[in-house]
Simulated assay, not measured.
Amino acid sequence: MSVPPKPETPPANDAPEGVLTRRTPWWRNWKVMLPLWLGIAVLVGLGLHFNVDRGVIAGSVVAIGLISNAFAWLLGVIALVPVIGPVIVKVLSIGFIWLLNAVGYLVSYIAIRRGYSKDVLTYRGLTVAIIIGIVIGFVLGKLI
Rank of each mutant, 00 (worst) to 15 (best):
A58H: 02
A58G: 09
I88R: 03
L66Y: 08
W37S: 03
G39D: 10
A58E: 12
L75A: 11
V62A: 12
V62E: 10
R54S: 12
W73F: 15
L46K: 12
F50H: 13
L66H: 05
G65Y: 00
I67Q: 11
V42C: 11
I67H: 06
L75Y: 09
V81S: 10
G65V: 02
G65D: 01
A72P: 04
A41Q: 07
F50K: 00
R54D: 09
W73G: 03
L36P: 00
P35Q: 00
L74K: 02
V44A: 11
I57P: 02
V61E: 00
L74Q: 04
L80Q: 15
R54W: 11
I78C: 01
P35L: 04
W37R: 07
A63V: 09
S68N: 04
G47A: 11
L46A: 15
L38A: 08
V61S: 02
V42D: 13
N69T: 11
V87H: 05
G59Y: 02
N69H: 15
A63P: 03
A63W: 04
L46N: 08
I84H: 07
G76N: 05
I67M: 11
G76H: 00
G76S: 02
L46E: 13
P86W: 01
G59P: 03
V52P: 08
P86I: 03
I67G: 06
F71S: 12
V83N: 13
N51I: 00
I67F: 13
V77A: 10
A79D: 13
V81I: 15
S60Q: 01
G85Y: 00
G39W: 03
A79Y: 05
L74S: 08
V44C: 07
L74P: 06
I88L: 14
A79I: 03
A72S: 13
L80C: 07
L48M: 10
L36W: 05
I67P: 04
G39H: 03
V61W: 01
G65T: 05
N69Q: 14
A79G: 12
I67C: 08
I84P: 10
D53S: 12
N51E: 14
L46M: 15
I64D: 02
V62S: 10
V52M: 13
S60D: 06
P35T: 02
N69W: 08
G85K: 02
G59D: 02
A63I: 10
F50M: 07
V44G: 03
G47M: 06
L66V: 11
F71Y: 09
S68T: 14
W37P: 02
S68G: 04
D53G: 08
F71A: 10
I67A: 14
I84Q: 11
A79K: 11
L66A: 12
G65E: 01
G39P: 00
P82F: 09
L80M: 12
F50P: 05
P82R: 07
V81C: 10
F50Q: 09
N69I: 01
G47C: 07
R54T: 13
A58N: 02
A58M: 13
P82T: 09
